[in-house]
Nucleic acid binder design. Structure first.
Length: 234
DNA sequence: GCCAACGTTGGC
DNA sequence: GCCAACGTTGGC
């Protein structure tokens, strides 16, 4: 599994409004992320995803961006790094994205991420933050076992076996992007897209509007737009 | 290493 | 349920 960069912190299920999450898939290790609340608000999901209706224009989020730290960092004595190369090295290049400890992210992992959907692998908290590859969801949300492991940095004593608080998905490596699509570049585009008259597709990219979320939702339009950048020289 | 943004905790 | 204090994320 991967590890997110953040730590565990057990979030309790209390905050309703929170939203962040992090965590990568994990293969070998995992890291946490945050998500939103749970128990109490299981029903209220984050509002991130909506269903299409003939009349509404709510965006459909069926693509993802998942953050992981490629550089070595220790949390409770456990190394948290998980780069795209680490994912590639996993058996079948597949990992669980464990360690997310944020309710909003948890809700995405548990409820919204579906089989075969694509996700960007994003390197964070490193020299060159940005998108480095593409992966796909190969197993939908299921309980993150690390919450029950006392020796795991993301152990959560408040989570019950029969009512797990935290979830993860499995992701499989698809390919690296032809080049790093940097945070800097995305930020520039985001700024332009906010200013342009009809706003551009990246005007509300969650990487900037919800920067601390470790698992972020994207529309197909956003995903495709960003992926096309790999063909530009930059 | 700093620090802004924002999530979490816990008293009241 | 509010909100101040505190903790974390993650870019810079």
């Amino acid at each position: 599994m991967v590890r997110p960069k953040r730590t565990v912190v057990k979030a309790n299920e209390v905050n309703t409004r929170s939203k962040s999450a992090v965590s990568p898939a994990g293969v070998s290790k995992r890291k946490p992320a945050t998500a939103r609340k749970l128990t109490s608000n299981d029903t209220s999901n984050s509002a991130v995803v909506q269903k299409p209706t003939a009349t509404s224009k709510k965006p459909i989020f069926d693509h993802w961006l998942m953050k992981s730290e490629p550089d070595s960092r220790y949390e409770k004595g456990v190394e948290m790094k998980f780069s795209i190369d680490d994912l590639i090295k996993e058996p079948k290049s597949t990992a669980h994205w464990d360690g997310v400890r944020n309710y909003e992210a948890r809700n995405l992992l548990r409820d919204q991420m579906k089989l075969n959907q694509q996700a960007f692998f994003y390197h964070s908290n490193c020299k060159q933050p940005g998108i480095v590859g593409v992966m796909k969801i190969v197993k939908e949300g299921y309980p993150d076992h690390t919450q029950f492991n006392k020796s795991d940095p993301h152990y959560d004593a408040s989570s019950l076996l029969d009512k797990p608080k935290w979830y993860m998905v499995d992701v499989k490596y698809v390919r690296k992007t032809k080049r790093l699509i940097s945070l800097e570049e995305l930020k520039k585009l985001h700024t332009e897209h906010k200013k342009s008259l009809p706003k551009g597709v990246l005007h509300d990219l969650s990487l900037f509007t919800r920067s601390r979320l470790s698992v972020q939702p994207l529309t197909k339009e956003q995903f495709d737009f960003i992926l096309k950048l790999e063909h530009q020289d930059k």
